[in-house]
Amino acid sequence: MLDFINPYYLQIGSFILINILLAVSVYVPLSSGQLSLGSAGFMGIGAYTSALLTINFDLPIFLGVLAGACLAGILGIIVGLPSLRLTGVYLAIATLGLGEVIRVIFVNWESLTRGSIGLTGVPQIGRELLNLVRGFGFEPSMIGLKNNQFVFLLVFILLFLIVLATIWFVVRQQNSRVGRSFSSIQMDEKAAESMGINIMYFKVLSFAQGAFLAGLAGALFAHVMGYISPSDFSYHRAVEILIFTVFGGSEVIIGSVFGAIFLTLMPELLRFVSEYRYIIYGIMLVILMAVRPQGILDIHLLGRFKGIKRSKGGMR
């Protein structure tokens, strides 16, 4: 019974959810016109901070994750302030460079990070949650689940709630004075400023929010995986995250969600041609950009869906 609660599927589901957080961490700065490739670096900061705090100081995971995300956010503010003078590709490369510098520090600060081997034995969220519910006298077998099924299920549900809360936050923020400021800066920075918008504040705000989200995702990643190493936060990761957002459609948040889901699943679906899957991935990106450079989902497409729903398939 309940065999459909398959740890393998739940694990993939959890990765998808973490990837959605990462995609949103690129989406938010992009919504104020800033292309950041620093997500992998901020993710690493979050992951290492939380892992080290929980391993070395027995901090509860919850606090570790919060600390990791906050530190990434603070770094985002520190980096965001001077980076504001940079636009477009300059900012992209500077943030990419920042990510590389962070990664190299992880590799070389061996006394703290154990170098390229990475950290093992990071406390896992699932076990912690299991212990917690057991504290209330609950056993997974009471609802007919095996322990590991239950653990993966809990992790998935927790991540799902976090993703939901994040999307709720971003969408609410978007439909408000803050969100309007972001998009006006994205569309015309000078005009936005002459409308009384403090562009410095809002640009740093969106950049730091992105950094915070990436740090949060990184910290969660550490406690879901149980081990981390610098190569988890490399250039490849930065590019992967960017592609989630751009592939899905960078104009709308649902694009990031879709991109993360689709592109996390795709390598799994392409397992039968696993040797060629990255080759196919590369070709797919080229074709997509040629055919639909704004990404799969955009405002017009969504508008059409809404229109169809409203008029029940009639006119649009």
């Binding site: 590709v89 080759i279 590369g282 990106l285 080229v286």
Partner: peptide, 23 residues
């Protein structure tokens, strides 16, 4: 092409780089 942001060529050439590296 209309509506092509500066992201598009970046992603497109990243696609080529992934292709060539794995090839």
């Amino acid at each position: 092409k209309k509506g092509v942001s500066h992201l598009a060529p970046l992603i497109s050439t990243i696609g080529v780089s992934i292709l060539l590296e794995n090839l």
